[in-house]
């Protein structure tokens, strides 16, 4: 694991008004999030993709896939926290790259009041071009899903250039990087 890169990523996320924590194992993920937000099971939604990724992980919250499709949007809009995976982290800009995924709809990183990304340390790239290339090459031509780059919480400077965090999207944004080598 390149520590310099991880340090840069962390400081960039902080610059953008987000937070970034390192978990030594997948077991630590939940305690980091719980400690941060102290939310109940009903208030937290996580994607089915997380369940696919970590079979040993327990997150306090509700698996989105267990909610009937016609109710999902309302539930997401009312949630205090949405937790997703990602497909890459960019150190240079403190960015999480999310590829649209069947078990992880884009609304989950958009509608809940807060958004936390869970990433693996080997998903960290120095710059966007490297990450984008990797993603592009992992899908057949013409089958690339939509991609969202997320760097910090939603923000505006439209009123006298003063920064206000939390406009139409998440008010808070965090990244938990699982560094198994830690």
């Amino acid at each position: 694991m390149n520590n310099e890169l991880l340090d840069l990523f962390q400081s960039r996320v902080n610059d953008m008004g987000g937070w970034c924590a390192i978990a030594g194992s997948s077991k630590e993920i939940n305690s980091i999030i719980e400690e941060k937000y102290k939310l109940g099971e009903e208030e937290v939604l996580y994607s089915g993709r997380i369940v696919e990724q970590f079979n040993d992980l327990t997150v306090t919250g509700t698996d989105l896939t267990n909610i009937s499709p016609d109710k999902r949007r309302d539930v997401m809009a009312g949630a205090k926290l949405g937790i997703t995976m990602c497909d890459g982290l960019i150190a240079e800009t403190g960015t999480a790259v999310l590829v649209n995924h069947i078990a992880e709809p884009r609304e989950l990183s958009l509608l809940p009041e807060r958004h936390v990304v869970i990433a693996l340390s080997d998903q960290l790239y120095p710059t966007l071009d490297k990450c984008l290339e990797k993603i592009k090459n992992s899908y057949p031509a013409g089958k690339l899903p939509s991609i969202t780059l997320i760097s910090g919480p939603s923000r505006t400077s439209d009123i006298e250039k003063s920064l206000v965090v939390g406009v139409h999207g998440p008010v808070e944004f965090g990244v938990v990087v699982v560094d198994r080598g830690k």
């Binding site: 960039r12 610059d15 953008m16 960019i90 240079e92 800009t93 403190g94 960015t95 649209n100 995924h101 069947i102 709809p105 884009r106 609304e107 899908y139 089958k143 690339l144 899903p145 939509s146 991609i147 969202t148 780059l149 997320i150 760097s151 910090g152 919480p153 939603s154 923000r155 999207g169």
Partner: peptide
């Protein structure tokens, strides 16, 4: 360094673009 969001839209909802 980067705006909060960059959307790269690769088409409407479909089999490989689930929402």
């Amino acid at each position: 360094r980067m705006t909060s969001y960059v959307s790269m839209i690769n088409g409407p909802r479909s089999h490989h673009n689930p929402d």
